[in-house]
Computed example of a mutant assay.
Amino acid sequence: MSSLINTQVKPFKAQAFHNGKFVEVTEETLKGKWNVFVFYPADFTFVCPTELGDVADHYEELQKMGVEVYSVSTDTHFTHKAWHDASETIKKITYPMLGDPTGAISRNFDVMIEEEGLALRGTFIIDPDGVIKTAEVNDLGIGRSAADLVRKVQAAQHIAANPGQVCPASWKPGAETLEPSLDLVGKI
């Protein structure tokens, strides 16, 4: 897998289920704001609703940070609506749920499992210019944490606003950052 970090999101066009409607989303939709793509294998499964529900629980906080979230699976937008209507956990989702039945978007982000027609659990933070700043990819049985996603977005936004600074491990807003220099070499 080659790194997608600091690459531009490739062109795409998808239908999404969002707040009771079907809407079109493209790479142009992402421009001008921070975005998070949360890939997952399939609707009506097991780990997926726990993750998507966790993201829904943190969605308001992400929105206050100027971030839009898009969940993506190889299901259709119709299936997303049916799942939203059927599951108490998924009913609380108010972010767009993108359908990727051809797998094109999943391939663009290098998370497609070709022999299964499903996406790995991939999370990508995308800056307002459409550039991928973080990538986390997990095997199907390993769930992710939305609280850590929030922390990573905070760090990405801080670094974007403060060139020359870097965020150390477990950094949170208000904590000290580092300014790489010759004086720091071997002193951390």
Rank of each mutant, 00 (worst) to 15 (best):
T102M: 06
I93G: 01
E68C: 03
R144F: 05
H18K: 07
S2K: 09
Q165N: 08
L52M: 11
P163S: 12
K10M: 10
G117R: 06
P11T: 08
C167H: 13
E176V: 02
G103A: 11
E28V: 00
S87V: 00
R151S: 15
F37Y: 08
M1L: 09
V137W: 11
G122N: 06
K91T: 09
I105C: 03
L118K: 11
L140F: 14
P163C: 09
V131A: 03
P168A: 08
H77F: 14
A147N: 13
K81C: 02
A42D: 07
D129A: 14
L149K: 09
K13Q: 13
F109K: 10
L4H: 06
I93E: 05
P41D: 04
P96I: 02
V131C: 01
G143L: 06
Q165E: 15
S73V: 00
F78S: 03
L178Y: 12
T177H: 10
K21C: 03
Q15D: 15
K92R: 15
L118Y: 02
E179L: 04
S2I: 07
G130R: 09
I93H: 00
Q165L: 14
W34F: 10
A161W: 12
A104R: 12
L118T: 12
H18I: 05
G53Y: 03
T74C: 14
K172P: 00
A104F: 05
E27P: 13
G99H: 04
Q8K: 15
G122Q: 09
K64F: 01
Q63L: 07
F22N: 11
I132P: 04
T102R: 06
E27H: 13
E60S: 10
K81D: 00
R107L: 10
E179C: 05
E176H: 11
G143D: 09
Q165A: 11
F22E: 13
G186N: 14
I125V: 15
A104W: 03
Y59M: 06
C48N: 02
P41K: 01
P101D: 05
K92V: 12
I132K: 06
R151F: 09
S87H: 03
L140K: 08
L30G: 01
D110H: 13
E179G: 05
Q157N: 14
E116N: 15
M97P: 06
Y59E: 14
